[in-house]
Write a protein that binds this DNA or RNA. Sequence first.
DNA 1: GAGTGGTCTAGACCACCCG
DNA 2: GGGTGGTCTAGACCACTCG
Lengths: 253, 253
Amino acid sequence: MPETGWATVPFMSTLNKTEGVSLYVQIRETLRSQLNSGDFETGQKLPAEDELAAQFGVSRMTVRRSISDLVDEGLLYRRHGAGTFVAQPHVERDHNRLTNFFDTEQAREIDVEVQLLHQEVVPARLLVANALALQETEPVIRIHTLRRVDGIPTAVYDEYIPYLLDPGLLQEDFRYRPAWQVLESAGYKVKRAVQKIEARPADETFARLLDVEEDAPLLYKHRVVYLEDGTPVSLLLCHNRGDKYAVKMTLLR
Amino acid sequence: MPETGWATVPFMSTLNKTEGVSLYVQIRETLRSQLNSGDFETGQKLPAEDELAAQFGVSRMTVRRSISDLVDEGLLYRRHGAGTFVAQPHVERDHNRLTNFFDTEQAREIDVEVQLLHQEVVPARLLVANALALQETEPVIRIHTLRRVDGIPTAVYDEYIPYLLDPGLLQEDFRYRPAWQVLESAGYKVKRAVQKIEARPADETFARLLDVEEDAPLLYKHRVVYLEDGTPVSLLLCHNRGDKYAVKMTLLR
DNA sequence: GAGTGGTCTAGACCACCCG
DNA sequence: GGGTGGTCTAGACCACTCG
């Protein structure tokens, strides 16, 4: 009888071959819940892939796929010839994902209020045209909002979408969902975004909107969202109060 | 005879089964060079996986692995039941990697100069101890530098490494390589970093070092580097002149 | 219905690590 | 040398897309 819990769990009995969920996903989530439950020590070795495959009643390629996903997430790591091991927990992950500010922030019971300043169709200025691969003066939908957190003005969002991509979008409510999520609901396959972050001084307009002194440091974000085929579909220009906002990201070797 | 170049290239003859490079890597790089050469139009369909496998003379699972890598990079995208397609080029990728500032910036013939302000062993203050999972006052190696680009002071780096991890590191030259690269050379398996970015006003010290006015906007970066097993091995506190520096990152859905 | 990608099998051989 | 992960095969069946 091993002292770890690994070999004692009748893994294979938990798999369901008839439902819609693939085996490698079921196995991955089974392993993840084992890891999250905290039963396993940092650095502890998992059973070999052969053995896990036998326990789950699947082929080794299938269990490898499950493990690979968890390795990509940083929960496990492999050493060729040695084994698969449990990484230290609590390393923050999953910054580098497109997420909805409201899903993540409001879930923490933070009070977010959105004031719509403009929702209109305007000709693209050069910066916007460049980001969205349009000609200058082509029409774009502009959504301009001021966001308050706990009553404190925190960010000014200026978001642009090519009008000709889908004129019907002009009728959507962009206040509580980022543009990419509105596009997703409309059937577009949103895949990735590239953003650039700078520290900039507040000009007179932003100082007034954000209730800070002129030249106060703002965190400026320039984000372009792309579909899976690489089409740019939205540009977000975002000015955040420097003292109220931070961006996190994960870098891989 | 198809009108595309895909079927006309004798792929399999280019593979080398005896050298050290795995087949899926050879196939991936062959496909990548085809894509980079620009012969293929955005949205063009690739041959089916079955056919590519036949052309390369490998099994379908092998060619799938190659394609999956390119899909992860954003060069291709798959549609279940429809095919694999070429994504739009020129989407910037591969931010989110740990890279050496000098490899990337000096390669562009930018003149970077590093002035060592301190290299010493000090007791960890609370911020440092928290980031590196140490007790306060445990000894850490501190590397404090001022960086000039084209003669203009651009960034102040303050980097910390647990002294007890490897006391010999104190003798290393940290000026032209980030700490994580020094650690890598010493045999440590560097895996990931988590960084937080803020906009902050320059205090008197940073204003003097960076030759800006007090309260000028700085881009502040707090970065912790982790080994593959999750051990934190370095903390970087970095203050960049806001008007001279930007951070880019890619977000995935 | 034909073509495609998504999943899965039951093996195999190799390179690498460690005691 | 025994155990491990890395790669690869030659199939198979399914789910999905599209004309």
